[in-house]
Nucleic acid binder design. Sequence first.
DNA 1: TTGAATAATCCACTATGTTGAAATATCTTA
DNA 2: TAAGATATTTCAACATAGTGGATTATTCAA
Lengths: 148, 148
Amino acid sequence: MDDTDLGWELSTAVVLFHEAVARRLGLSAVDHKALGVITRRGPLTAGALAAELGMNASAVTALVDRLERAGHARRAPDPADRRRVLVHPAGTPALGDVFAALTREMTAMMSKYDERETAAILDYIRNTIAVLRAQTAALTAAGERPRP
Amino acid sequence: MDDTDLGWELSTAVVLFHEAVARRLGLSAVDHKALGVITRRGPLTAGALAAELGMNASAVTALVDRLERAGHARRAPDPADRRRVLVHPAGTPALGDVFAALTREMTAMMSKYDERETAAILDYIRNTIAVLRAQTAALTAAGERPRP
DNA sequence: TTGAATAATCCACTATGTTGAAATATCTTA
DNA sequence: TAAGATATTTCAACATAGTGGATTATTCAA
């Protein structure tokens, strides 16, 4: 019972943190998500980004315009195919600062657990990720079912 | 190093899960957030909801219209002050199903840890919530600093 | 009991992001 | 190398949600 509420609070805290980061960077939710994709999936073509975000090509053109204007990303031609544009992350200092602070706090916090506790915690995190992904997939599938 | 990535993956999984829930219910991010507030803060006046969401009164009128139309909330007069409207959650079956499934999976997953492991995990969750809230507050404060 | 304050709503306007079609450039393959 | 396919961009609607001001109903205070 306590567990459920705690999980819910954690989930809310995560979402609110993401919102705060987006607000800090002056980004909408979609733009922030896109920046996340660009940052971790490395350089990406505009088309791949569109597929990842479920948007069409022209919306992505506008999105990358915004990110580029704000200094969060930059376009570069794809040397392998000159029709393509590769969107690179442009290391925004603000974004780096945000995650450096978070990582520092989390690392400090984790340091007080012994080996066995740490193992349990990491296992829990991995399992939670798996559960969330499965539930997300189930929800998405349920939403698409009535369609075709 | 592994820790950081894991935390990041967990955070992403949480956000994607929230997005999937919103999509499933046919709600925008803001409307979904509002529904969360209404569901856990019980019946709420429109004004209180506006304050919670950082929106003005007329935007909340439109928001509650949407939630009511979709069957996720209902308005009732406040018996204590007839100018006021109380927004009640209207137990959407879809929403209940989503969280029942998640709770079931999470409970099953937690059952395999012994007492000491469980204690460590719960402590970790509590600390993570605290860190995230502090970081969120710091980000928000930083954003508001240059203002007045 | 009258006048000011408050709560919600309505309305016109604005800002933002998205779509779809057309244009351009490049690649692929027959 | 010519025809068709693909990647991105541009542009003109369009949709959605949020703002600010006016309106109505009700409560509070002098």
